[in-house]
Amino acid sequence: MSRPERWIRLRGKPRGPRAFRRDLAETAPGLGAGDLTALLAADGDEILGWGLYHPSSQVAWRELRRGPEPPDEEWVRAAARAAAERRRRSPEIDERLCRVVHAEGDDLPALVVDRYGDLLAVELFSTAALPLARLALPELHEALGTRHHRLALDAAAARAEGEAAWVETSPGCPELVQVEEDGIRFEIDLRRGHKTGFFLDQRENRARLRRQVAAVEEAEVLDVCCYSGGFALAAAAAGAAAVTAVDLDEEALAMARRNANLNRSRSIRFVQADAFGYLRTLAANGRSFDFVVLDPPKFVPSRRERERGLARYHDLNKLALPLVRPGGLLLTCSCSGLLSALEFQERVRQAARRAGRTARLERLTGAGPDHPVRLDFPEGAYLKALWLRIT
């Protein structure tokens, strides 16, 4: 078999749909960002698969297609159509408010597409994925009947690749959109919001919390790292007597307040504060709650920051556990893909022991079916949510 013009070779066997720079044994000369590149076997010229290369990213190669046949433009278009069709067929997915493309989970690496009604919010986690987005977007618009899109390069990914973050939009694309989830209205600020503007991955967990709160009379709820108010609004809609929603980000709290006003929610009190310091203050004041929700940002964004991130998960949970009333519920979340569910659970177990509380795991959940995960890429199951009954 002749060697293709663009290729890379690993030091050993591939361990999933990604190859890190440290795993490369050699590469063809002159490879550029976004080049369609063959992955060669370590001991010969057998082509194991094809993917997108980036010369600056720590993730040097992202698989598109396994085997010797290279994916052409029609292959990419077909992958986009298939992703849209999977959402349309599923009885568990609201196709007007869902993740339409989930990167490796839909065979389109480094590309995420969320649908908000008539708008597609697109995020790239590598400039190498830009050609995929260009090919996929027309197919998605046609399949879904959407009209607008906003395409952005993730700021952290841009820094990692030595690029400048950028945004481009379709003509007439709105900057603010309103959506409805389980009867709750949200305004999504595409300019200032995190990621694509709204955390669709927590949709099923918000619905579950709402059912839990509805079963408790005069429930008091604490939502820590509330962002745009998703969990807080779900609790308020369930009839909670009092909800305290905390976030350090002033713009996030402004969005949360707007969403509360949209829904005429009067039971939510918003607090701008650092989560760690505010939890200490609540404990010092003898406060307690029937439900405590912890949904912090990604504490382990890279392997280099792993130990520090693990310590922060431990400390945050250690501070929150004493605030849960006996028999109450702690919903604690991690969105760090580099942290497994078992590792996260172990950190929370240690925190419960240090806090002198007993925590019983009632359920372990994650994102919904619009966030599919390849079994050879467990990092795709980045969201872990532990539902813990505390005594």
Rank of each mutant, 00 (worst) to 15 (best):
D223Q: 01
D223T: 03
D223R: 06
C225L: 01
C225G: 08
C225V: 00
C226S: 12
C226I: 11
Y227S: 07
Y227P: 08
S228V: 13
S228Q: 12
S228F: 10
G229N: 02
G229I: 04
G229L: 04
G230D: 11
G230Y: 00
F231D: 10
F231M: 00
A232V: 11
A232R: 09
L233A: 08
A234W: 04
A234G: 03
A235F: 03
A235Y: 10
A236I: 07
A236R: 10
A236K: 01
A236G: 00
A237P: 05
A237W: 08
A238E: 05
A238H: 07
G239N: 05
A240M: 04
A240I: 05
A240H: 11
A242V: 05
A242C: 12
V243A: 01
V243T: 08
T244N: 08
A245W: 08
V246D: 06
D247W: 11
D247E: 01
D247G: 06
L248D: 03
L248R: 14
D249V: 12
E250V: 08
E250F: 13
E251H: 04
E251P: 10
E251V: 14
A252T: 02
A252I: 00
L253R: 07
A254G: 14
A254N: 13
M255W: 15
M255T: 12
A256R: 04
R257K: 11
R257G: 12
R258C: 00
R258K: 11
N259Y: 09
N259F: 12
N261G: 15
N261F: 05
L262C: 13
N263S: 03
R264E: 13
R264V: 09
S265E: 07
R266E: 14
R266A: 01
S267E: 12
I268W: 00
F270K: 13
F270D: 14
F270E: 13
V271H: 11
V271L: 02
Q272D: 08
Q272M: 13
Q272Y: 04
A273D: 06
A273I: 02
A273F: 00
D274S: 11
D274T: 02
D274E: 11
A275S: 07
F276V: 05
F276S: 00
G277P: 07
Y278W: 15
L279M: 15
R280A: 07
R280M: 09
R280Y: 11
R280G: 12
R280W: 13
R280I: 00
T281G: 12
L282H: 02
A283P: 07
A283C: 00
A283L: 11
A284D: 14
N285P: 11
N285W: 15
